[in-house]
């Protein structure tokens, strides 16, 4: 992870250390608890759960809840399972992440290497946009998407996520490029490279790490979004989170907790995988969203 692993100079006694390990271990259990609950209950028949066996390992192992959550559970009115919504999320996330990252990279490049009067204020305006409560834009956004003919479409959601994501992507690239030597840009200018050539040939080849941070952050945020999905998606463009909520909240019929848990894991799987594979970059994104510089 990005936290520098420098050793502290503090020394502690034996008993204290035992206690510390004990506390740390207790919290490991606390953080793992919901994941454990979701996992074990997603592979057991419903009667094992309702019979007070939520914390037990499954007596009968079954993948039935997973299959049901994926392809046949009742979501809203259709018994489609989460599968179509999974693809909705993918087709929304991929373009939104790509566009917002490219724009963020260009913005960061301009804001650090082509500085002009009031550029910090403009950046401040973009950054503040990340932190507004999105309730304030819900009504006009719904109107605007309607006017643009994008209401209820995946592309409408892409637009929304790009707009409210560029503040963060710009922040990442700006902070990254701020420490990129400006002399390199000047040297390239003297060598005759233009605005885009400098970006493409000089900065971009060194931007790998921050691009990963930006992509992961955007991916996680957009995948996990619920508010925009619930507000602007149509029946055929709902993302995974909205579908999961519909599945869990649906008041008709028997509550199939095991299917709910399987669905929850399905919804969590992509971001969880990203976290396991590239957690270092995920944490870096989190941190630079809060402690800047």
């Amino acid at each position: 992870m990005s936290v520098a692993s420098q050793d502290t100079a503090i020394r502690t006694g034996r008993v204290t250390r035992m206690l510390i390990y004990l506390v740390l271990l207790l919290f490991v259990l606390f953080y793992m608890l919901p994941l454990y609950v979701m996992l074990v209950n997603s592979v057991k028949p419903l009667n094992e759960i309702t019979g007070g066996g939520m914390m037990n390992l499954p007596q009968v192992f079954t993948l039935e809840p997973w299959a049901k959550a994926w392809s046949s559970a009742q979501i809203g009115v259709e018994p489609t399972g989460l599968r179509p919504y999974f693809w909705n999320s993918i087709s929304m996330v991929v373009p939104a992440v790509a566009i917002s990252t490219v724009l963020g990279a260009l913005n960061g490049y301009v804001l650090t290497k082509w500085r002009f009067k009031y550029d910090t204020i403009l950046f401040g305006l973009m950054l503040f946009a990340c932190f507004i409560p999105f309730q304030i834009v819900l009504i006009p956004m719904a109107r605007m998407l309607g006017l643009m003919g994008m209401a209820g479409s995946v592309w409408g959601l892409v637009l929304v996520h790009v707009v409210y994501g560029i503040g963060f992507t710009t922040l990442y690239f700006r902070n990254y490029y701020a420490v990129f030597p400006t002399e390199l840009v000047r040297a390239a200018q003297i060598d005759g490279a233009g605005f885009f050539q400098i970006f493409w040939r000089i900065l971009l080849p060194s931007s790998g790490p921050i691009a990963v941070v930006s992509i992961i952050w955007q991916f996680t945020n957009i995948w996990n979004d619920f508010l925009f999905g619930a507000s602007f998606a149509g029946p055929t463009s709902q993302p995974m989170t909205v579908a999961l909520n519909n599945l869990v909240q649906s008041s008709t019929g028997v509550k199939e907790y095991n299917v709910h848990f399987a669905g929850a894991i399905l919804a969590a799987l992509p971001t969880l995988l990203v976290y396991i594979v590239a957690g270092r970059y995920f944490v870096r994104g989190l941190m630079s969203g809060s402690v800047k510089g």
Partner: peptide, 25 residues
């Protein structure tokens, strides 16, 4: 490193997933 990874993973989840897990627990 392992402990940190476990403490931080909830941050990667959707609130809907978190809500679902705790709701039934």
């Amino acid at each position: 490193g392992f402990i940190r990874t476990i403490y931080l993973y909830p941050m990667a989840l959707s609130f809907i997933v978190t809500g679902t897990a705790w709701k039934w627990f």
